[in-house]
Each structure stands twice: as C-alpha cells, then as structure tokens.
Computed example of a mutant assay.
Amino acid sequence: MELNGTSAVVTGGASGLGEATARVLAAAGAHVVIADLNEELGKQVAEEIGGQFAKTNVTDEGDAAAAIAAAEGSGHPLRVVVNCAGIGYAARTVNRDGSPHDLASFAKVIAVNLTGTFNVLRLAASAMAKTEPADADGQRGVIINTSSVAGIEGQTGQIAYSASKGGIIGMTVPAARDLSVIGVRVNTICPGVIFTPIYKSIAGGGKEADEFLARLAAPVVFPKRLGRADEFGQLVRSLVENDYMNAEVIRFDGGIRFQPK
C-alpha cells in the first residue's frame, strides 16, 4: 500500500506508540488524523505533522465515526487505520486480602482495549469499502491493531489487561477473513516492553530510574534494552507497505518471554 497521498487514522495518537506511528506515517506522505482524548497533546502533534485532531473516546460510536469522517473529508482516500488507544490496570483475580478483582475495572479495560479496537476497526473497514481499489489486487486499506505480549503470556496481576489484549489477538484472523471481500488487510502487533511516557513517569530520574529500567530490560534477549516507540512506528509502516502481510500476529519484543512476575 502506497502511503503518499492517503489519509490515516491513529487512535491514541497523542502520545507513546500512537504518536510515534502518526509521525512515521506523516513522514511517508499520509494525512494523519490523531484520534485521542488528550486534546492539548493531540492538537500539538497534529499541528507538528500537518494532520488533524479528532477528540475521540474509542468506546463511543459517534466519536469513532467522527474520526473516520475527518479522514474521509481530508481529500485523501482512507487507507490506513492504526489502533493504539488503550489503558492498563493491575490487580489479582483474588487480592492478598481475599477480596475479588473489581468487576467494573475489568469491564472498563475490556471496553477500552478490546471493544474500542473493534469499534474503530468495523467503522474504518466500512469506510474503506466505499473507496476505489488502490491497486490491481483490489486492495482498499490496511488496519493494524495493537495487542501486547501480555495477551500471549500475561503476568500475575494482569488478568484484565491480558484478557483485553488476548481478545485483540483472537479477532485478527477472523477480521482479516471477513474483510478480504472488500480488500482490507488486518494485522496485529504485540509489543513487549517499550519505553513510552508511562515508563518515563514511573522511572523518574537518577540512579533509581536507571536501575528500574535495567530490571525491565533484563529479560530481553537482544538488543538488551527497552524498545523504542519510533521502532514500533517503523514496523507499522513496513506492515502497511508490504502487501502480502495479512492476518498476522507479530511479536515486537526483542525476544522477551514474560515470567509469572
């Protein structure tokens, strides 16, 4: 898929993996719609890359539809959607004090990470179906979802997060099969430990921060460090531009395999 002259929607595009992806796609010539709840950061990124901002709660049908419509109205055909929006939550199924996992928190993580991804996916695919084919194969678009290695081998206290990310993995193949009739490819990336603003805020600064990041990187096989958000963006671009990549779940983790804790 040729990116130059197309439009793309990146959910969670105001920071982290989404921001890095938006910048990579824009550099390749795509008009990018930043779909995010963070209006201040979202508008800033959109301005810097020459794109648009759409305030978006991915669980809301109207918000998601408006973000897709913004891309459609840009004057460029909608060809790419990257789902990066997501939240985390840590709690055991039964806590140390014997209390059960909070159900509302579990439901919220599922709603944002899994249902939100599907909400955007279905609306984006419907919009892509209305475009003219981009090539002789009849290709109309590419949708890339963001899961996690936690969706494959979740750790203690990740029951909600792992369930949501595992669900994204589970819908990759059926979505690709469903959307083959309209020429839309679907792939899912499973990042490992990536150095995003979340880890920056946790780590803080100084020697303790260095030690914290070193512990996170210890299980990584090679290279012996945390992944970078721009490397994630590069992988997204590769998957978009390689027309034979479809219905795949790709680990992006430096070879890490999570232990129970």
Rank of each mutant, 00 (worst) to 15 (best):
D135C: 13
E211Y: 04
A111H: 10
S7W: 10
G205M: 02
G233Y: 04
G18K: 01
T156G: 14
K200H: 12
G12D: 05
A54E: 11
I34S: 01
G12R: 05
L41W: 09
V221K: 14
A229P: 08
L179A: 00
F222T: 14
S15K: 13
V149K: 00
Y89V: 07
I168Y: 05
A129Y: 04
I143H: 01
G154A: 10
M1A: 13
R79I: 06
V45I: 13
G154Q: 07
I68L: 07
H101W: 10
G166M: 11
R79K: 14
R225A: 13
E40F: 08
N4M: 12
V249L: 14
G255P: 05
I34W: 02
N242K: 00
G86L: 06
F212E: 04
F118Q: 09
N246V: 11
G205A: 15
A163E: 09
G75I: 09
V173L: 11
I152W: 05
A129K: 11
G86P: 07
S105L: 13
A160K: 04
R122T: 13
V82L: 06
T11A: 05
T196H: 08
A69F: 10
V149T: 15
G205N: 12
F53G: 00
R257N: 14
T172I: 05
A65P: 00
G206A: 14
